[in-house]
Simulated scan of single mutants.
Amino acid sequence: MTDTITIRKAPGKWSVRSGGAILGETNNALELLEGDKDPVIYFPRADIAMAFLDRTNKVTQCAGKGDATHFSIVNKSSVTENAAWSYENPIDAVAEIKDHLAFYPADSIKVEQL
């Protein structure tokens, strides 16, 4: 299954916002392409304001990437449950996404290229 996953440096600068707060900006995002799914942008944790994220108990499994832990976004006005995920120990074929976070598409979350 991992032969359908491609990871590359995402071109340019990327931002993620939620509830009006900028959670992070980076020039070091990764773009993960998997089959015919939409591309997913992964942000380095070092470029994310982790104080806005609370780890949850949700864990999902992907044969091509491993186990994903999930995080809720918590700000003054709202909580967006299980809004982000991270592969803490991805399988070797996608090791580049370790220490990165991706965000689910939602009305309250904006991932965009600047």
Rank of each mutant, 00 (worst) to 15 (best):
Met1Ser: 11
Thr2Arg: 11
Asp3Leu: 07
Asp3Ala: 10
Asp3His: 14
Thr4Asp: 14
Thr4Gln: 12
Thr4Lys: 14
Ile5Gly: 06
Thr6Met: 10
Thr6Cys: 09
Ile7Leu: 15
Arg8His: 15
Arg8Gln: 14
Pro11His: 10
Pro11Leu: 07
Pro11Ala: 13
Lys13Ile: 11
Lys13Met: 04
Val16Tyr: 05
Ser18Trp: 00
Gly19Pro: 01
Gly20Thr: 00
Ala21Met: 09
Ala21Cys: 07
Gly24Ser: 12
Gly24Gln: 11
Gly24Phe: 01
Gly24Asp: 11
Glu25Met: 09
Glu25Gln: 15
Thr26Gly: 03
Thr26His: 06
Asn27Thr: 15
Asn28Ser: 15
Ala29Asp: 00
Leu30Arg: 15
Leu30Lys: 12
Glu31Ser: 10
Glu31Thr: 13
Leu32Ser: 12
Leu33Cys: 14
Gly35Ser: 03
Gly35Trp: 02
Asp36Gln: 09
Asp36Gly: 02
Asp38Pro: 06
Pro39Val: 07
Val40Gln: 12
Ile41Ala: 01
Tyr42Asn: 12
Phe43Asn: 02
Pro44Lys: 08
Pro44Gly: 05
Arg45Ile: 11
Ala46Pro: 00
Asp47Gln: 05
Ala49Val: 02
Ala49Ile: 04
Met50His: 06
Met50Tyr: 07
Ala51His: 13
Phe52Glu: 01
Phe52Trp: 08
Leu53Arg: 00
Leu53Met: 10
Asp54Lys: 13
Asp54Pro: 00
Thr56Leu: 02
Thr60Gly: 08
Thr60Glu: 05
Thr60Cys: 08
Gln61Pro: 00
Ala63Lys: 03
Ala63Phe: 12
Lys65Cys: 07
Lys65Glu: 05
Lys65Gln: 04
Ala68Pro: 02
His70Met: 09
His70Glu: 05
Ser72Glu: 05
Ser72Thr: 05
Val74Gln: 01
Val74Ile: 13
Asn75Ser: 04
Ser77Arg: 04
Ser77Ala: 06
Ser78Glu: 10
Ser78Trp: 01
Val79Gly: 00
Val79Asp: 01
Glu81His: 13
Glu81Cys: 02
Asn82Pro: 03
Ala83Cys: 05
Trp85His: 06
Trp85Val: 10
Ser86Gly: 05
Tyr87Met: 03
Glu88Arg: 02
Pro90Gln: 13
Pro90Asp: 09
Pro90Ser: 08
Asp92Cys: 04
Val94Asp: 10
Ala95Gly: 04
Glu96Lys: 11
Glu96Arg: 14
Glu96Trp: 02
Asp99Ser: 13
Asp99Met: 08
Asp99Trp: 00
His100Tyr: 12
His100Ala: 07
Leu101Arg: 08
Ala102Glu: 10
Ala102Lys: 10
Phe103Cys: 10
Phe103Pro: 09
Tyr104Asn: 09
Pro105Glu: 11
Pro105Trp: 06
Asp107His: 06
Asp107Met: 09
Ser108Asn: 14
Lys110Ile: 02
Val111Cys: 08
Val111Gln: 01
Glu112Thr: 07
Glu112Leu: 05
Gln113His: 08
Gln113Trp: 05
